[in-house]
């Protein structure tokens, strides 16, 4: 509301909001803090901070489970599947946004409905096919699965962005003598770039955190960080500091990406149903 709020009220709201914000963030903060403690300190309770900060957990985690390989796999799978998704989605979204036909709406809704198919409906055939062809734990086949998984979302996000570009401008470029290729590269692409970038970001995040197919279809060689963390699910002695270090390493890159793309999240995940 345009009305002036009193400073007292603002102060109270600030206190409440910050308290809730910190409570929500607490599990993450706690994990990060614990990752710098020694294992002994990690289980000593009221201890918010460590007696002696240490980086050794990160080293141990790298040594024990080869963090860098998993991280590399996460990068390959998340970025690779998203890029592949863009290759298929950009032309599709361009076509549906700028040359819609009678069937375009149905096509879009149908694409969305494929996203709603529960993974267990496809789990067994995919698993058996992967087993037969020895694709389990291979980068490319897993990447392709993740690509198909996120394709509807990529198309939808791009479509909503493209829809906001006035057709007039593309037509003007045609009048100005631009061919299809020039229209796409010189006019559409620069205007759509922010949209493409946030689509890219959001889908990298979703692919990075995908934890159904990656847990089933990868093991060691092509396994991403979701699987790496899952290997910490059975406790062995004092291991919280190491678990925390591993968790911190797994979430840090994507948390930062997420902070940058939070505004686009709404649009992408509601398929444009909430403006």
């Amino acid at each position: 509301m345009a009305r002036q709020t009193s400073p007292q009220r603002k102060l109270i709201v600030t206190l409440i909001a910050w308290t809730i914000g910190i409570l929500m963030f607490w599990p993450i903060l706690w994990t990060i803090l614990t990752s710098f403690k020694t294992e002994q300190d990690a289980v000593l309770m009221p201890q918010l901070f460590s007696t002696g900060w240490t980086f050794e957990n990160f080293g141990i985690v790298q040594e024990r489970s080869d963090y860098l390989r998993f991280a590399m796999n996460s990068i390959i799978l998340a970025f690779g599947s998203t890029l592949l998704g863009l290759v298929f989605a950009i032309p599709a979204a361009w076509s549906m946004a700028f040359s819609p036909s009678k069937r375009t709406k149905d096509t879009l809704l149908w694409m969305l409905s494929t996203k709603m198919m529960p993974p267990v409906g496809a789990l067994l055939p995919i698993y058996l096919i992967f087993k037969d062809y020895h694709w389990i734990d291979q980068h490319i086949p897993v990447l392709v699965i993740m690509f198909m998984l996120n394709l509807p979302l990529v198309i939808w996000m791009l479509f909503t962005y493209f829809k906001e570009i006035p057709v007039d401008i593309l037509e003007a470029s045609r009048m100005d003598g631009a061919g299809v290729w020039q229209e796409l590269t010189r006019v559409l692409a620069p205007m759509a770039l922010p949209g493409i970038a946030s689509t890219f970001l959001l889908n990298v995040i979703l692919a990075w955190n995908e934890a159904f197919w990656t847990l089933k279809l990868t093991d060691v060689h092509a396994a991403p960080l979701t699987v790496f963390i899952a290997s910490y699910s059975s406790p062995e002695g004092l291991f919280w500091a190491k678990l925390s270090a591993a968790s911190t390493m797994a979430i840090a890159p994507i948390l930062i990406l997420g902070w940058f793309s939070q505004k686009q999240l709404v649009r992408g995940l509601t398929f444009g149903a909430v403006k």
Binding site: P27, N209, T226, L243, S247
Partner: peptide, 19 residues
């Protein structure tokens, strides 16, 4: 505060479960 509140959404399910 907005960033703090939104953060859990970006945490991979395996990490949040174990933490």
């Amino acid at each position: 505060v907005r960033l703090l509140v939104i953060s859990p959404f970006f945490i991979m399910p395996t990490v949040s479960a174990l933490v």
